[in-house]
Nucleic acid binder design. Structure first.
Lengths: 280, 280
DNA sequence: GCTGCCATTCCACTATGCGGAACGCAAGCC
DNA sequence: GGCTTGCGTTCCGCATAGTGGAATGGCAGC
């Protein structure tokens, strides 16, 4: 079994072959093999996760080691994220500076609703959790930062779809995201999501498409001037804590209003992330 | 003038030539060209910052674009950090999870002392600021996250030096960090720093080595099990706010005790980061 | 000592990435 | 309108950087 297989067939079909730097893509896929949970990976594990031949991995990890992106505490030990990688992370983190004011608002939201609040970004064909806020007292430790959700069947993914411009959507499709369970085309889902956002300001996954049968969630997209695409905030909990009617009546609106307050605070024109025509 | 020249002569002397993947290193240096401040870089800017030829940069940005590390909001526009880069940042960020409990402690420290509190990590031949806490009321906006300090002449750098093991120090030297102004060898500085840490639990830059003539700072190293090397917390302010005697009598000890409390909280055996013989 | 398991090293091959120069495009300016 | 400047992409022959299967060398442990 290959639980976590990342088998990027790097160079999907970026027809523009000639300009695509394979070595770079492979090296990055090595870095990407590291997940929040596991600390330390052996070359063999990396090879398995990336699908690259061992000798190639060996050379790449060597290079990344030289540059400080990976470190081996002692020789012949597993690799861990190195200082340079951390430093690079901050550049990314800086783009997320708007989360500083969000911090308290989202924590409060988590406490008031008793749900897990998530902040998520599209990562290729998935949605990656970048931050979570747990209600103070309560609840199953449940989704880790770094976890990746399917785009087509998570409410976070839907919110991103609904908020994406035509170009962004095209770019997204090119990553070949997994289709939702019932085969609804992503373009349709995008319109559904957009309609939900326009009608009520938040998005939920339609019945029957939920990838998890006992977790409910509701999501709202967000845009920052500093960021290229939309991102999403979500509230999630076990079904019995968060039934559909509670989403509609309480949690959805609260999330929507919280995000709107943040949007105003951060000052990105106060225009909701999904506004504009589907073709803009 | 080349203000920000990054002229990594990648492949310094990693004799092990054959195994070094140049393309990967170059691609990463492109990503590293992005700083917290500037949003969006043109290919030409990247070429200037990295010292790579234009055509090479073009191909690399193309690749990074395909993979989502960079995005062009619209074609032929400047590149910005993309979603994949953000997602990768979180892996790094996850290694810094221990900063969550630090959050409040450091903010309180900033408020009480009226100094800027910094969290810094070594990044190749420099020290990179990863987080800052400003005193609530007060003070010049002054050092941005992402800023890089010289190792040999900043107190953060000294703390890292003093806390590094023999191997870590060797690795650090290999990056060829800038020597301090008066030419003191880094090995000597490391011993001085270590002595300061043993004697009083915090480190300051010796008179005359300060790279900035009107800013004073004091630093304490820290270790997390999840991290490969030591990191540092510092308090800094303008000279007149933070004269040497105030560091000794008040701010230094407060910083030391705060970090010690964090160290205990996080549970990394409570052993100070600099303990052990210089050769361990 | 035998057996997995993992990392590193070797080596011949060729696709890959290189970079100077040419091209195309869009602004700004006489 | 034409001339210039600056940027990004494309072209293309060349050298070599990167490849990956197989062999080698260490560890650890029923």
């Amino acid at each position: 079994m290959t639980p976590d297989l990342q088998t990027d067939d790097l160079r999907p079909d970026y027809e523009d072959d000639r300009n695509f730097a394979t070595t770079l893509a492979r090296g990055l896929s090595v870095l990407r093999a590291f997940r929040a949970g596991d600390d330390g990976l052996t070359n063999a594990q990396i090879a398995e996760r990336t699908g690259l031949p061992k000798s190639t991995v060996s050379r790449l990890t060597f290079t990344l080691g030289c540059l400080g992106y990976l470190t081996q505490p002692q020789r012949n030990d597993r690799y861990r994220p190195g200082p340079t990688l951390l430093a690079m992370g901050h550049v990314a983190a800086a783009s997320l500076a708007f989360l500083d004011p969000a911090q308290d608002m989202m924590q409060a939201l988590a406490d008031q609703t008793g749900t897990l609040v998530l902040f998520a970004v599209r990562d290729r064909d998935k949605v990656a959790l970048m931050r979570t806020w747990r209600p103070q007292r309560a609840a199953s430790i449940w989704l880790e930062v770094g976890h990746r959700l399917p785009i087509g069947s998570s409410s976070s993914g839907l919110a991103l779809l609904g908020a994406s411009t035509r170009d962004e959507f095209a770019a997204l499709l090119a990553e070949g995201p997994e289709a939702p369970l019932d085969g609804t085309p992503l373009a349709d889902l995008r319109m559904q999501a957009r309609n939900q956002l326009i009608a009520q300001g938040f998005a939920v996954v339609p019945q029957g498409l939920r990838y998890s049968t006992n977790i409910s969630a509701v999501s709202v997209p967000f845009r920052s001037a500093r960021l290229a695409g939309p991102v999403a905030f979500s509230c999630g909990a076990l079904d019995d804590v968060l039934p559909a009617d509670r989403i509609q009546a309480q949690v959805g609106p609260m999330l929507r209003d919280t995000v709107a307050r943040l949007q105003r605070l951060v000052g990105t024109d106060g225009i909701p992330a999904w506004s504009g025509s589907p073709n803009d």
